[in-house]
C-alpha cells in the first residue's frame, strides 16, 4: 500500500512517499538522507517520540528545571511518561545532564535535566 509521511528527524522535513506492506518498506522516494528510511521503518513497526517537559524543583532559584528523555519512547506511553514526570520533585541544585529518573517506567531510557538550577541562597533574598 502507499504510505506518505513527513520525516520528523530534522528541520528539512522530507516528504516520504513509499510503498509498504504495512510492516516493511518495499520502495521509498523523497528521503534526502538514509535517516528517512530508518525513520519510516521505525514508524511502521513501533512509532516512538522523545518527550521534553519540566520538573518541579524545591529550594531552587527557579521553580522548574527543563528535562528530556535520553531516547524516544513508544508513542502510546507518552501520557504515562508525562504523569511520572509530573509526580517527580527534585531538590536544588540540579546540574545540566543530571539523570533525574533512571530507566523511567522500565522503558529503557532516563529522564535528564537540560538546564541547571542553583540553590536559592546563591542569589540571596530578592
Amino acid at each position: 500500500m502507499k504510505t506518505s509521511c513527513v520525516c520528523i528527524i530534522c528541520p528539512k522535513g522530507c516528504e516520504l512517499e513509499g510503498e509498504t506492506d504495512g510492516q516493511e518498506i518495499l520502495s521509498l522516494e523523497g528521503a534526502s538522507c538514509p535517516r528517512g528510511r530508518e525513520y519510516l521503518a521505525q514508524e511502521l513497526r513501533d512509532p516512538r517520540r522523545t518527550i521534553t517537559s519540566t520538573v518541579l524543583v524545591e529550594g531552587g532559584e527557579s521553580p522548574l528545571v527543563s528535562v528530556r528523555l535520553s531516547a524516544p519512547v513508544p508513542k502510546n506511553q507518552i501520557f504515562a511518561v508525562m504523569e511520572a514526570i509530573r509526580r517527580l520533585r527534585v531538590v536544588a541544585p540540579v546540574s545540566l545532564g543530571e539523570v533525574l529518573l533512571p530507566d523511567l517506567l522500565r522503558l529503557g531510557c532516563d529522564l535528564i535535566a537540560t538546564h541547571q538550577v542553583f540553590a536559592a541562597e546563591k542569589y540571596g533574598p530578592r
Binding site: V6, I8, I9, G13, R49, K75
Partner: peptide
C-alpha cells in the same frame, strides 16, 4: 510552521 512540527505537534 515547519511540516515536521505539524506532524509531531498536531497530527500525533
Amino acid at each position: 510552521g515547519l511540516p515536521r512540527n505539524i506532524r509531531q505537534c498536531l497530527d500525533d
